[in-house]
């Protein structure tokens, strides 16, 4: 695991995430959101979970980001209006971050380096999904179908 790569990726991810949270133009925020997810996928690659990283890119850049920009397009008339920025959220977020960081730094058992492990191949993930995780997998399939139908019904034109 490479220190330099880690620093570069974390700066990219956090900067993009911050931009996604604070940029004024919705479209720019949505695109920074996509960049932030590329950064998170890079973290997964760095941690040796390539399959999850690829799945993340596939789902978030290919589907969720496009959905978000489509929604922005469909609700476009609303964009130009000025809207308030709630400063109490900043205080809460900073407090949460400080609390979490304090807790993490206090816990001595967390300052460990990664052990050497066998590379996680797609085959092993597939075997796990098809043996011990069959039921969760089926449930996810059901959930996704329900979400698909639900989203369709919600967004469908109302018959008058």
């Amino acid at each position: 695991m490479n220190g330099a790569a880690f620093i570069v990726i974390s700066i990219l991810t956090l900067a993009a995430a911050l931009a996604a949270a604070t940029l004024r133009k919705l479209m720019h925020a949505a695109l920074s959101f996509a960049v932030a997810f590329v950064g998170i996928a890079a973290f997964f690659f760095l941690l040796g979970a390539e399959f999850v990283g690829l799945a993340l890119v596939f789902i978030y850049i290919g589907a969720v980001a496009v959905l978000i920009v489509f929604t922005i397009l469909l609700t476009r008339r609303d964009i130009e209006k000025d809207r308030g920025f709630n400063w109490s959220g900043v205080i809460i977020a900073v407090a949460v971050f400080c609390g979490l960081t304090w807790a993490i730094l206090k816990t001595a058992s967390l300052s460990i380096v990664a052990p050497h492990i066998r590379a996680l191949t797609v085959k092993r993930i597939g075997e796990a999904l098809m043996t011990s995780y069959v039921w969760p997998l089926q449930c996810i399939g059901l959930l996704l179908t329900a979400a698909l139908i639900g989203a369709l019904v919600l967004a469908m034109e109302e018959k008058r």
Partner: peptide, 17 residues
């Protein structure tokens, strides 16, 4: 890369964006 086909489609899906 282990999972090259998935890489192909994951990267290719950014074209839409």
């Amino acid at each position: 890369i282990d999972g090259g086909i998935l890489f192909f489609f994951a990267v290719g899906s950014a074209t839409e964006l």
